[in-house]
Design a protein around this nucleic acid. Structure first.
Lengths: 108, 108
DNA sequence: TGAATACCTGAACAGTTCTTCATATATACT
DNA sequence: AGTATATATGAAGAACTGTTCAGGTATTCA
């Protein structure tokens, strides 16, 4: 499935991919994204508790994810609920969890 | 395929995943990894040319990938050839390229 | 042995990232 | 209107990242 494809990755394409991977390059952000995938919709305070960070720090992280359109926010009364907005991240995280966690230790 | 799984991502697990994604969070490093996947084995000077960076900068990047055991180096005479050492990154990049490049514009 | 080639490495510097703290905004309640 | 709750935001600082530059190591060739 790798052989026979476009063969060259332009710098622009690499930058697009890098930006996506960068969003997942922080433990807190991964926990946020993962929690939203599992739970569907969560409030900022709930996410802060799950991650174990302050609400301010969590809000800053959510802002990044929001600006990158990876998550979407909706106000409900005085709370704001976040949910996944990017369908692709689900599979990407699935693959990573499947391969880099529990047991898949093979190399070479 | 997402429903019905372990449901909670520990901070340690999130850190492991984040470290892997971080390696792919730089355009140059993505180009290096992609080129190695496509070509099998390449020298530092070739990789530097592909990425469009100095050989020193490329060497520093390769060092990171090497220490993370994502690539492996072998000396042949006075040149050093690099190849992919982590089987998982292939699929991860495949998924990312497939979803974030050419046309898969769907959201929500 | 000396020079050339291919690559590595450490230090330094600019740019970026993440957190905290203080403050601001929006909504709800009395 | 005033207070409480939930979240957002800007500034500031510490820590980290990627590049360059200068010099170092390993190998080949004359």
């Amino acid at each position: 499935m790798v052989t026979g494809r476009s063969n060259k990755l332009t710098r622009e394409a690499a930058a697009i991919l890098a930006a996506r991977f960068k969003l997942l390059s922080d433990p807190g952000r991964i926990q946020i994204v993962y929690a939203l995938i599992e739970s569907g919709e969560l409030r900022v305070s709930e996410l802060a508790q799950i991650v174990g960070a302050s609400e301010s720090a969590t809000s800053h992280q959510l802002r990044q994810l929001r600006l990158a359109e990876l998550v979407r926010a909706t106000r409900h009364g005085r709370e704001i609920r976040y949910r996944i907005a990017d369908v692709h991240v689900r599979l990407l995280l699935d693959v990573a969890v499947e391969h880099y966690l529990h047991g898949h230790e093979s190399h070479q």
